[in-house]
Design a protein around this nucleic acid. Structure first.
Lengths: 359, 359
DNA sequence: ATCGCATGATTAATCGTTTAATCATGCGAT
DNA sequence: ATCGCATGATTAAACGATTAATCATGCGAT
């Protein structure tokens, strides 16, 4: 709807100048005397002037809107991501239009098209399981994982895995089961790889992928972790807090105390991580930072680009493409029975130590 | 950015007619011969014409964009809501712009203003804890709970509570602890009220509000549920799956088996409900339906409204304002020890029976 | 034969902003 | 005194669609 507020012309008439002068003064582009600028600024503020996006968009070919595409919108990380992107975008003066693709890969293209048709200036895409983004007609920032070609910026998932691994190793764990969803995901692979990289000589890791298991036994099937404990695994390093939750409750239900009998760690520091019992040790990504970098790169690309040319571009690049993850130490991981922890500085980054319930 | 695609004029020139005719043909408004309409439709489709939102918005005063405001974006329900709203909006030809207010009430106004300044045609607001929505300059749909004045459409939280309560009662529970976050929330109050309404003669319910407890003992503090079990409570009816999760893990950790020794139920059917052990019995709202009604009401109000008048309106109203919730029966609630379940049809609505892990 | 009218299409104005091109003015240098 | 130039402001065109007003045409009725 059209804002009811004053138009540019009204400010111009109020001050007895032309609309062009007002526009120039407000944008600081043309030649306007300092005093005039001052007067115009003042009355614009006083009248509560807000430029019409429509008018501006029509003239400049820029809408000031970014599109956000999360092919897997049901993802519990969605709130974090959306929040961070919206913050970054709005503080750069951009709006954020969302598009959902119901987890469906074919609908993803439709969703992107919907955004393009609405003339977004750029897109932020968090791709689903290694989907490559086809050339769209506007700048695109891809948030996946540093090892993915075409990635713009992402958390250092591999490094996060290493931190989790080092934490577990320092606690004394030698047999660790990595629990993930799907090996086709670059993110999950990097996290798992990071964990594995820590356990060398005299250690053993194996990986349990849930999705194939569920294809056989049905959704929500037991993971059989009690047996794994019997096999000597003392820690379950889960690729996401969602899996950690699943592992934790399954172990508890089987009468295996966490963390005394088995340690469990997660990833992402999802909303429930601090409030479950025991509170979940996990690795968190700095979405605020990631979003800021992604949006900045996008904004740069947008401003450098000629709005009329229908460029078919690769994803934009940022100076920093890898943002460190932060280990959040809570209660779900501890030294295994019959082993004393090794006291070594575990990671380069300082881990966040957080109690489950400090006053 | 400006779409690279063909403009209205190009179609006009291609067919040797005026732009006005093309516009009329495509919108079906003016007087155009049937054959002309056909030809124009055809070439428009062939050329892949997409109207410029900017041009249209400038002329009509309608942007075709709705704003979505979730004051508590960190809410784990967010994905569900956003997904449903986006679906409903896009199938009505609208885009969805999001605004976050970081859970802060004062920032909420700012967020709404950001959307208004971007000329959204209407707003969907899921208010935080009974916040009243001040008059904004455009149609607003409020999704809260039917008992809230000014509510447009919402799940029947009270009815959902009743279903949960009846389920527990039918299982044989007589001492039930309701676990909520904050009594200031209309939604939570309605849910709790619905549960309570079921337990009359010879039954006992009490309510535990987490937020006041945390203000005393710190975030993530223990809820002391083991003591409650000792006091004779056999079921914990939580107002949200998040609390249910907290209760479940705390009980498990204390060695109290769920559901044998204590039943736990939730609300919302959040992502983890089906995959934890035991899978969570909960009540789900039909967000798709709610979103459809909210958006439909909004669209109606928008089309009836004169885009130029800066109406200061109350929230729009819908024909149906109360959408039933669905009980999802899984494994976390069962008959208490030493009591046989009463076999009664528990609810009017057919509950969804869902296994934790069927093949 | 003429008027009126319905039909189908065109003209031109408009939405609000930006911006290139133009214009007026005063001042310093020749 | 005149030219050139810098400065500050104005004019006017443009973006792409919509729509009220207008125009041309043919046909039936008087």
């Amino acid at each position: 709807m059209a804002r009811s507020g004053p138009k540019l012309t009204r400010i111009a008439r109020t001050l007895g100048v032309s609309a062009a002068t007002v526009s120039n003064a407000l944008s600081g582009k043309g030649r306007v005397s300092a005093e005039m600028v001052e007067k115009i600024r003042a009355t614009a503020a006083e009248l509560g002037y807000v430029p019409s996006q429509a008018g501006r968009a029509l003239r400049t070919g820029r809408t000031g809107v970014l599109g956000l595409v999360l092919p897997d919108i049901a993802n519990p990380l969605f709130p974090q991501i959306a929040q961070a992107i919206e913050l970054a975008a709005s503080s750069s003066g951009y709006g954020v239009l969302i598009a959902d693709s119901r987890g469906d890969v074919s609908t993803q293209t439709k969703a992107i098209e919907r955004l393009i048709d609405r003339d977004v200036d750029g897109l932020v895409i968090v791709p689903r399981r290694g989907t490559r983004i086809a050339d769209v007609g506007c700048p695109v920032a891809v948030i996946d994982t540093p090892s993915t070609p075409g990635n713009t910026v992402a958390a250092d998932h591999w490094g996060g895995g290493r931190q989790i691994g080092e934490h577990l190793k320092a606690l004394g764990h030698r047999r660790v089961l990595i629990v993930g969803n799907n090996p086709a995901s670059n993110v999950q692979n990097d996290r798992a790889g990071g964990i594995r990289s820590v356990f060398g000589e005299g250690c053993h890791t194996d990986t349990l992928w849930i999705e194939p298991l569920e294809r056989m036994n049905g959704k929500g099937c037991p993971l059989g972790l009690a047996e794994k404990v019997a096999e000597g695994y003392t820690a379950f390093a889960c690729i996401s807090d969602l899996h950690a939750l699943r592992a934790l409750t399954e172990l508890q239900r089987a009468g295996i105390k966490v963390p005394e009998k088995a340690s469990v760690t997660g990833f992402d520091d999802l909303i429930w991580a601090p409030v479950i019992t025991p509170a979940l040790t996990t690795a968190r990504m700095d979405m605020t930072e990631i979003a800021a970098i992604a949006v900045a790169a996008l904004v740069k690309a947008i401003s450098e680009r000629d709005p009329t040319d229908p460029q078919i571009g690769a994803p934009v690049t940022a100076e920093t493409s890898k943002v460190p993850m932060h280990l959040v130490v809570r209660q779900s991981a501890a030294a295994p029975l019959g082993s004393q922890p090794i006291h070594t500085p575990t990671t380069a980054a300082t881990p966040v130590i957080e109690g489950g319930h400090q006053p």
